[in-house]
Design a binder for these strands. Structure first.
Lengths: 140, 140
DNA sequence: GACTTTTCGGAAAATTATTATCCGCTAGTT
DNA sequence: AACTAGCGGATAATAATTTTCCGAAAAGTC
């Protein structure tokens, strides 16, 4: 995995730096779709001088080489996902966590849409909103 | 229509003002899902002293009484829609326009998701991305 | 391994959509 | 017509993201 990103960066003319590897590693080893701020604060202990701008600049590169997708689940900040499969996401309206909806087959639905529009479709994002199991319990 | 919003505003304790009616009218008579800025500039000629803050404040009220939904199709600003049906939207990656995808039945898809998650689902937004017919032509 | 070139990371400032504040004024009620 | 709660407009504040600038570090070359 570390090797994948090293090769990919270099082949696209980007330099391989510890910061870039670290940011990707945080994303890769996380299921919580962290925001830039979350990535930043998680790396504070390892790279005390890391700048938020570096997080943003790196994410843009990772998106460009297809290692990360950007989520916009309607909060005040973006979330990032190292899983670039096109899977739906769901956000808890109470605690704000964003989860994957795995094992969903969207192909039929997407194909239906593609037939009904004159657009040339290149991608899509499905966001669901609700209350996560934990928050349901707490409100009981 | 003018009557609907008048009654709705008043019944919820909001005052009925020319600005509020005008902002809703712009949204109601538009298929293009305007941003706050677009609403603002469209009303410049009629209300030269209108403030952007008024647009935002009014939209928040309209959302609260269920007359408007907020779209977050991944641009740098929100879009607003006076059609509060839960229909999918599609954005052109070239010119930025946002269109409705009408006549799409999402119920089956949504029900499938509802069965597969422990969340209590309360809503969803489907965004498609692609190239609109006009921009397809231009690029040929 | 030293040299060169190019890109990078960090700090700080800039940008920009949106929200909050404050105050004279207006809508709605009596 | 008077009263009062809420409003509109101007302005400042907020906050996420982007840009700028420069010393430093990466990668290719010898």
């Amino acid at each position: 995995m570390d090797n994948d990103i090293t090769v990919l960066l270099r082949s696209r003319g980007f330099k391989v730096t510890p910061q870039r590897l670290a940011i990707y590693e945080v994303l890769y080893n996380s299921k919580e779709h962290p925001s830039a701020e979350m990535i930043f604060s998680r790396l504070q202990s390892v790279y005390p001088t890391m700048s938020l701008a570096t997080v943003y600049k790196t994410i843009e590169i990772l998106r460009e080489i297809g290692l990360v997708q950007i989520l916009n689940a309607g909060e005040d900040s973006f979330r990032y996902d190292a899983n670039t499969d096109n899977h739906p996401h769901i956000r808890c309206l109470i605690c704000g966590r964003v989860d994957d909806l795995e094992g969903v087959d969207s192909h039929h639905f997407i194909n239906m849409i593609a037939k009904q529009t004159d657009y040339k479709i290149t991608g899509q994002q499905f966001y669901f909103y609700g209350i996560c199991p934990e928050c349901q319990q707490k409100s009981n």
